[in-house]
């Protein structure tokens, strides 16, 4: 819970940057590493100044404050530096590693999945891996098949990993504070399409606990569980439906592992209808996982079949009309809601 602190307006990008600053100030064992997180390493006129501050500018200005011993530009070597981050986490640092786009996970999955996620368990609870891996997700900028995926479902599937999917600047800030302070391996998924979105962000440094959903809009007729940017798409759908007299409740799980089942089940018990909106691919995905959970634990409260609105079972296409077809739209969400009422 964020305490009653003064409010400021920040973009999602600024909120991430601010959470990195806050935690790095409070904990000297935090290092940030990734490709061009500063940029310009070893360039004479950029001693403690960044060339980029991340390809999107998310980490801009951090090297000025924390220096190049804590803001580490890495070579393009995902298995190398993600693995090094795991090893550093197991031995006393609290690293933050930036995997530039989640689509690159294939280059380093062994280090995440077989090393970082499993070491505590395999070592009988004697080790920990307080590592946060920040990565970009999301279609909508014509970045095509290898720079646009979501893939958080892949990581949510894996024991030993926590997955965080913020949809607003306030959530990005509060959840990143908690993710970095967390003693487990956390995958933090930043939606690139949301970087420019603005919102009110408390100035406090308490953090939002992982595993607590947030009701982004209250309503009595239907529950929409929406993930990451799909929260915004669902809120737009709710506006369309409100004009028709349909009151939508939008539940943002905020973290997929752990998952706040109680908030979802309580909302469905109230509305008796459930639509799940997810930009990730549909097979073995977060949406079908949540649907199965509600079918198992909340079946008696449902008055209609659970419906899913997801990306199709395809890679993300490049051409604008193809990509727009790929992303669940407010219209498609609204149409699905109408279909079960």
């Amino acid at each position: 819970m964020v305490t009653a602190a003064p409010i400021r307006t920040l973009t999602y990008l600024q909120a991430v940057n601010e959470a990195l600053r806050v935690t790095m100030r409070e904990d000297p064992t935090i290092v940030l590493m990734g490709e061009d997180v500063a940029g310009g390493a070893n360039v004479d006129h950029l001693i403690n100044e960044d060339a980029w501050g991340g390809p999107m500018g998310v980490t801009k200005g951090l090297v000025q404050e924390f220096g190049r011993n804590r803001i580490l530009d890495t070579p393009i070597t995902e298995a190398g530096f993600i693995g090094a981050a795991v090893g550093a986490a197991a031995t006393g640092l609290r690293p933050i590693a930036e995997l530039m786009f989640v689509d690159f996970f294939g280059c380093c999955m062994d280090q995440i999945f077989d090393q970082g996620a499993k070491l505590r368990y395999m070592f009988g609870g004697k080790a920990r891996c307080p590592l946060t891996i920040r990565t970009q997700i999301g279609a909508g900028v014509n970045a095509a098949g290898q720079h646009s995926g979501c893939h958080y479902s892949v990581f949510t599937h894996m024991p030993g990993i926590k997955t965080v999917v913020p949809s607003t600047p306030a959530d990005a800030y509060g959840l990143l504070l908690s993710a970095i302070r967390d003693d487990d391996l956390v995958l933090f998924f930043e939606n690139k399409v949301l970087y420019g979105s603005k919102g009110e962000v408390p100035e406090g440094t308490d953090g939002i606990p992982l595993g607590v959903a947030d009701i982004k809009r209250e309503g009595a007729d239907v529950t929409i569980v929406a993930i990451s940017r799909m929260v915004q798409q669902s809120l737009a759908a709710a506006e369309l439906l409100a004009d028709e007299g349909i009151e939508v409740e939008v539940v943002d799980p905020r973290t997929l592992s752990p998952l706040d089942e109680e908030t979802i089940l309580n909302s469905v018990a109230k509305t008796h209808h459930l639509v799940i909106v997810d930009e990730d691919n549909p097979r073995c995905g977060a949406a079908s996982d949540i649907a199965a959970m509600v079918a198992d634990k909340g079946f008696d409260t449902l008055d209609a079949p659970i419906k899913l609105v997801t990306a199709p079972h395809t890679p993300v296409p490049f051409s604008p009309p193809l990509e727009q077809f790929y992303i669940p739209s407010p219209e498609k969400i609204a149409e699905t809601v109408r279909g079960i009422l």
Binding site: R70, A84, V86, A90, L93, Q111
Partner: peptide, 15 residues
Amino acid sequence: GGLPLACGAALTAKT
């Protein structure tokens, strides 16, 4: 699997 991990342990020692 252990090669990058060793780099990380060494990074801890260095940092």
